[in-house]
Nucleic acid binder design. Structure first.
Lengths: 226, 226, 226, 226
DNA sequence: CATGAATGAGACTTCATTCAT
DNA sequence: TATGAATGAAGTCTCATTCAT
């Protein structure tokens, strides 16, 4: 009943296929969003046919979830490890963490994930739970934990730690969001702010505000003491 | 025994139709995203038939753009006016502006627009230009202008003003974003941070970092004095 | 995003559509079976487009069930009514019933339904229940009830009534089955048996076997008494 | 330390492969029908891979035809042989034949074949010819031949022999059909009729109707004597 | 011979859009 | 204007079949 025709050379790469498909899907989902990405396009970009995609992921939705998992699950672990081994001041730890995050994530297509997730969670209840548990909660714990550490050690003023964590993280993620939305549009490729300047400014302002008193030797801080 | 027709009611609604359609579309686009919102559902929520929707907007895309324009065009004007008439310190102006924005926008379904726009700009190039011109640029000018004013008046340390504007705005918008994505999922209705706390903390930290020296006690600031 | 083109005249016939679709579906399901019938073909035969079919029936499966219901639900009621109003002998009643059934059903495309149902029930558990309740059980009750009546009135020998009902009905339905399968193939259009002969023979043999003694005046019975 | 290969086991099975494939296909076709049976599942049930199936049968259609041929070709031969060697009365011969058929076929998954064939012949014209030639015609000849024999020998009344053959065979096949459709559904495992009762009743009724006079007590007959 | 990864035609279904009423 | 029945392009997913290993 079907009338198949002989085709081009086919390659057998069971081991590497999932990664190739995940990479293709990541790029397209970030570019077009979940709904606007056609599964056949994902397959083509991965260099396989439509059917092959479904050999590895039973539906577009599962593919999406796999992309999210693959790109997010390892991130927090790294942050926690970095924080655990750190021996300097809490300010330095936060600065180090944020710069590292930007290099490892913010700069990377993986950062676009957050854009899609924000846009699509309401249509994927399961994903909401997963992403909260796997990404948002741990990130919050990581940052507010360090803030708490700073308070406990007398480095920081006592403040609501979760709010501080939000204020710390938000500008960075928001910048990543914009780089994957407006920043990717041809018109405004030259954003008025670049990441490095923003990060330095952010650390200067917020860490400065956090510290009990601004000590002399930190170059990033221009705070004058009373 | 002619059946009396509700001509008057229909007549009265005729002028409000576009607004009703835009409201319905706004709610649905924010809830489900652009692609997942069916035009029939927009019509039904506005109390009209599918055909009527197309009488007012020639396509779903145009409806989407109209929703974005309607909800974004007027916002910045208010801010600019507020800023122009303000006579207090730049810190107070920023605090006032941000609190006002949160009340007028961040708390409002209109804030969800930003979520969709971020998700969809790359599929709607025309929107990118419009949104940049109408929303992003003016907001940046508004905030960085005030920062510049503060610097000029000797209130603030000299800093890269665009970066500062970003750091000021980002946590607020990011919070609004999350309230329209994860915050709307049944699981996490009790976010670890509430808007008021976050805003107060943000103003405390960033304004504190901005100011040349810690001046007399400001209400928004919990800074410890020497 | 969609690019629709203007097309032919479209007719609005909401009232008659379901029947037209059901008729088209019946014909095709009987001819090709459920799986081999494409929904687009059903639509085309009904003179509408693919989409219109789904306006009335949410899936091919539901269309199938609707076809079964439509064609079967009324049949048994007629039989019961006929039986209720009958005043002659049980033999005559059975003969009348079977000839009527053949005219009303066996000769009709609706008889092909049984073919599809037999072929597909195992893939449609809900249908099994429905069909048993609506068709098989009532038919069995109808026929075995009459046989019981004959026994009670001393017309028939005591026998297992359900088995007798099966023996009565089976040759007729089986003939209908074959007319919709082999009988529809071009090669054997001239079956060695025609319905009329079969029916007469069947009544002669089985009714003759049923009766306590073969009385003289019934032409259909040639039974000699011991 | 070479790993010993189970060459022998594979070798041994090589000759039985076709049979194993046919058995697997038979079971699945009967259970799900032709279209709903996936070729991969046939292969798995036969313990081989998808590719191997196509080594033996070039397509699913050919596999189907092979299943039909395999299960139907030999059946009639037995019947003919039995009939040829039989020396008793025609009634006894018919009774013996039908009971044998039920044991050898009606009770067997092979009987389910008839169900699929009825459902699919119109999609497989070649099968129609084959099945008519190999199954229907011989069966008809076998049974109507015996009836003719009975008439010739004065045992039976003169009657249209093909019609009588139909009436004889139909209830049995119809019962087999139902056992493979409704009978296989979990709901009605307790059919109101069992095969044995039906067969006895059928022989009693029809043979009784056929015979010129009720002869001496036949084992299969429960006819009441005068 | 055997395997199973890969293919792609084709089926079902959705939904933006049209247009007769 | 307003309606909603009708349309058909397009997308998701299945599965018979192929072929490199």
């Amino acid at each position: 009943m079907a009338t198949p025709k002989p085709e081009h050379a086919r390659q057998r790469r069971k081991e590497t296929r999932p990664q190739e498909l995940l990479d293709a899907a990541l790029a397209l989902f970030v570019e077009k969003g979940f709904a606007a990405t056609r599964s056949e396009e994902v397959a083509r970009r991965a260099g396989v046919s439509k059917g092959t995609l479904y050999l590895y992921y039973p539906s577009k939705e599962e593919l999406f979830k796999a992309v999210v998992r693959q790109n997010m699950s390892s991130l927090i672990a790294e942050g926690l490890e970095l924080a655990g081994n750190f021996s300097g001041s809490s300010s330095e730890l936060l600065g180090c963490l944020m710069r590292t995050w930007w290099e490892r994530v913010g700069n990377t297509p993986a950062a676009g994930i957050h854009k899609i997730v924000i846009a699509e969670v309401r249509n994927f209840p399961e994903l909401a739970q997963f992403y909260s548990d796997e990404v948002i909660e741990p990130a919050d714990r990581l940052f507010s934990g360090i803030v708490q550490r700073g308070i406990d050690r007398g480095e920081f003023r006592p403040m609501p730690v979760h709010a501080v964590a939000h204020v710390l993280i938000a500008p960075m993620i928001f910048l990543a969001l914009h780089q994957h939305s407006f920043g990717a549009c041809p018109m405004n490729e030259d954003s008025p702010i670049d990441a490095e300047t923003m990060l330095t400014t952010q650390l200067d302002l917020v860490l400065g505000g956090l510290e009990v008193r601004a000590p002399a030797p930190r170059p990033a801080s221009h705070r004058v003491r009373a």
